[in-house]
Amino acid sequence: MKVLVCISHVPDTTSKINFTADNSAFDKNGVQFVINPYDEFGLTRAIWLKEKKGASVTVLNVGGNETEPTLRKALAIGADNAIRVDAEPSDAFFVAKQIAAVAQEGGYDLIIAGRESIDYNGGQVPGMVAALLNWPFVNACVGMDGEGPEFNFTREIDGGKEKLSASLPLVIGGQKGLVEESDLRIPNMRGIMQARTKPLEVKAAVDAETKTSVGSFSKPAPKSAVKMIDAENVSELVQLLHDEAKVI
């Protein structure tokens, strides 16, 4: 089994988000970047497949060379090798085309991506990859078991869960549950040392259209000051929710 884990390189969850002075772009100044939290679950799951079933694990990012520390971290966690497609990830379609091309060329049969990236929250890339390759797609995946080539999955749906099965080759959009939070791997000293010498291949992008263009950014309107209500006077809150907020 050849597993391709898609890693997006995103601002740390504690980042304050700012835009450039003309609001045309995200201001990366002083921002710490990390492996997209959803992708960490997929990466750990892939490493299990390596340890238990002898799968090979490649991590992939479409991005500029600033993402290499993120890929090195994934190698330190336990991936065998990394690929960076050297291009600006201009939109989901462009990125999906790159991932599909790498998957086809490299003969991968399982692609694990995250449910969404926490930067643009698109949640589009994995489904597009599946459609481009015409492989089954398991989105919002919260559980996986089996030996392969057939696997059983649990997937989140509105108001519940769905159990399904699918056979390789396939694409997963994963999240917590693929492995538990407490099972997430963090790099240890030995892993960090080994990661330095693991292969990180840089590939040129294949031709692909960018179908969308990004305009100006803005921030949510600031909240007006909180109204504090005395704990002894809860009925006042109920009145305010009715009269002022009009939500009950």
Binding site: I17, F26, N121, S213, G215, F217, K219
Partner: peptide, 12 residues
């Protein structure tokens, strides 16, 4: 965008 921390105009 950015998990509720911002908005962005997107065109096609």
């Amino acid at each position: 965008v950015f998990s509720g921390k911002g908005f962005n105009l997107l065109s096609t």
